[in-house]
């Protein structure tokens, strides 16, 4: 008897479920269809339209080597050790240049390389730089075919040429 009752109730339940399923689905469909007309497009058609990044966006690093005083603070702050700096004493009699902020450059920078493939864009190196020459640019399209090409030598003329293009104002 009880089994019969159970069957009966589940039979009713079945149709009730069916009704609820159709009703709530129609409700959901109504919400979805309201997007067909009159709602503005949210996605950006990327290569043609580009987003303007916020001022603080952290993209590819750029070192303005003229202002670097070879203090190696950035290399020490880097958690993944991907900044390679080498410097030597200024040759005798060479004039001591100054950075834009006025501190004298006492060492001759001979190498400043960042392995961008290792960099995690944490921004710790830019915060410790005393002359603010190491900054994050807004350049985010730099895919390469080989991993070696991700090593940027900031003293090389071609990388230096980015300066006009990507240094933040």
């Amino acid at each position: 008897m009880s089994t019969h009752l159970h069957q009966h109730s589940s039979f009713k339940q079945y149709f009730l479920n069916l009704f609820h399923a159709i009703y709530t689905t129609v409700k959901g469909m109504y919400i979805t269809f309201s997007y067909v007309w009159g709602v503005k497009v949210v996605s950006i058609e990327y290569p043609e339209v580009r987003e303007v990044l916020p001022a603080r966006a952290r993209m590819r690093l750029f070192n303005d080597a003229e202002n670097c005083i070879s203090c190696t603070q950035c290399a020490m702050a880097c958690p993944v050790d991907c900044i390679y700096i080498a410097s030597e004493k200024m040759p005798e009699g060479a004039e001591i240049k100054k950075t834009t902020s006025g501190s004298p450059i006492r060492l001759l920078l001979t190498q400043f390389t960042i392995d961008t493939a290792l960099c995690c864009y944490c921004g710790l190196c830019t915060t410790v730089c005393p002359t603010e020459c190491l900054t994050h640019s807004h350049d985010y399209e730099f895919a390469q075919y080989t991993i070696d090409a991700m090593k940027y030598d900031y003293l090389a003329p071609d990388v230096r040429a980015w300066r006009d293009r990507i240094v933040k104002a």
Partner: peptide, 12 residues
């Protein structure tokens, strides 16, 4: 978050 910290997911 990007405006605030500069990154979208890994903020530091």
């Amino acid at each position: 978050f990007e405006e605030l910290s500069g990154a979208r997911l890994l903020y530091n």
